Computed example of a mutant assay.
Amino acid sequence: MESAFELETRAVFDRYQRQQENDDHIFDRLASLIEEDYFGLPAGSFRGLDILDAGCGSNANASYAFLEKGARSVTSLELGSEWMDCASKRLGRFGARSALVAGSVLDLPFDDGSFDFVHCAGVLPHTSEPRKGFEELTRVTRPDGKLFITVMGTGNGVVYRCINHLRELYKHDLQFRHSVDNLNAASARQAIDWLLDTKDREEAEYLSKENDFFRSLFDEDFFVTIRDRFQAPTYHDFDFTEIQIRDWFAECGFANIRRISRYTRAFHNLRRFLAPMYRHYDHPLARFWFGDGCIQMIGERPRQ
């Protein structure tokens, strides 16, 4: 039975995931994250697999990518059923290969060993019992199958220290909450226009087209991310460690446990200049800004 907290979280995510569905650039960027090379697999490795996308989100972009890459079946699981109309817009064309299921990662409605590949990105921190959720994901992973999860690491970098502070402000300061809730590309464009117009009245551009470049750093994709960081409630702020997640995999019997990372391409905003730190999360500059960063871990469940 989902808690009120988890249902509130689902409602917040539903709002901005529907925005992502309606923006082809954002959806395509998200779907492009599912690449065999990223998971350390040969090209074509998803063909013929039964895959679970646990906590797929309303737009189910990862499910879409797995199906595009030839999965035999993809089961997209999310709380409730209100998200299914959104997910079916793109998944409907895959017919019986795509299944939409209402359920919780804390009590998966599947038999043991149902899936060859289990994908659970950014879900466990939004549950009351992340370790229980991990054990459920382990249970439904087949022998010789793989489990992939992402969680946000400890908030010991500058960015996440600021985010955690601003999340508290969002909870308690109505004016700040109103500003965040109304933050989007259109409202930002008005503010940026005022800023640059005021600057231009005082001095000419120092660099050719510097105003155009500055405007390009902020788009709707960027503000969807910002709202996500502040609006989404979580039981567990950024307080997971790489060692902790490795231990979860090891204690559940996984082998070939690897932390993986990627250079996230196709950003059209400020995050384009942060992508090198997403890829090289252990570089001193990345550690300074992001601490342990986004922990993305994959392991293989061996045959007993």
Rank of each mutant, 00 (worst) to 15 (best):
P125V: 01
R131E: 08
R131V: 09
G133L: 03
E136D: 05
E136V: 03
L137E: 00
T138Y: 14
R139C: 03
T141P: 05
P143C: 06
P143N: 05
D144I: 04
D144N: 10
K146A: 09
I149S: 02
I149E: 00
I149N: 06
V151C: 03
M152P: 08
G155E: 13
G157N: 03
G157W: 04
Y160N: 11
Y160S: 01
I163H: 00
N164Y: 13
H165Q: 06
L166N: 00
R167Y: 03
L169E: 11
Y170H: 01
Y170I: 06
K171D: 10
D173G: 07
Q175A: 15
H178I: 04
V180K: 05
V180N: 01
V180F: 07
D181Q: 13
N182E: 12
L183E: 02
L183S: 02
A188N: 02
Q190K: 14
Q190R: 15
A191V: 12
A191H: 03
I192G: 04
I192D: 07
D193H: 06
L195Q: 13
D197L: 13
D197N: 11
K199V: 09
D200V: 08
E203P: 02
A204W: 04
A204I: 06
E205Q: 15
E205C: 09
Y206G: 11
Y206F: 15
Y206H: 15
L207S: 14
S208W: 15
K209M: 09
D212K: 08
F213P: 06
F213S: 14
F213K: 10
R215D: 12
F218C: 08
D219T: 10
D219V: 07
D219M: 02
E220H: 06
E220N: 11
D221V: 05
F222G: 00
F222K: 00
F223Q: 01
T225M: 13
T225Y: 05
I226L: 02
I226G: 01
R227S: 01
R229A: 07
F230C: 07
Q231D: 04
T234M: 14
Y235N: 10
H236N: 12
F238S: 00
D239N: 15
F240I: 02
T241F: 10
E242N: 13
I243P: 01
I243H: 15
Q244H: 08
Q244Y: 07
R246G: 03
D247R: 11
D247Y: 13
F249V: 09
F249C: 02
A250S: 11
E251F: 05
G253I: 00
G253Y: 12
A255W: 07
I257N: 09
I257E: 01
R258W: 06
R259A: 02
S261C: 07
R265C: 12
R265M: 09
R265H: 03
R265F: 05
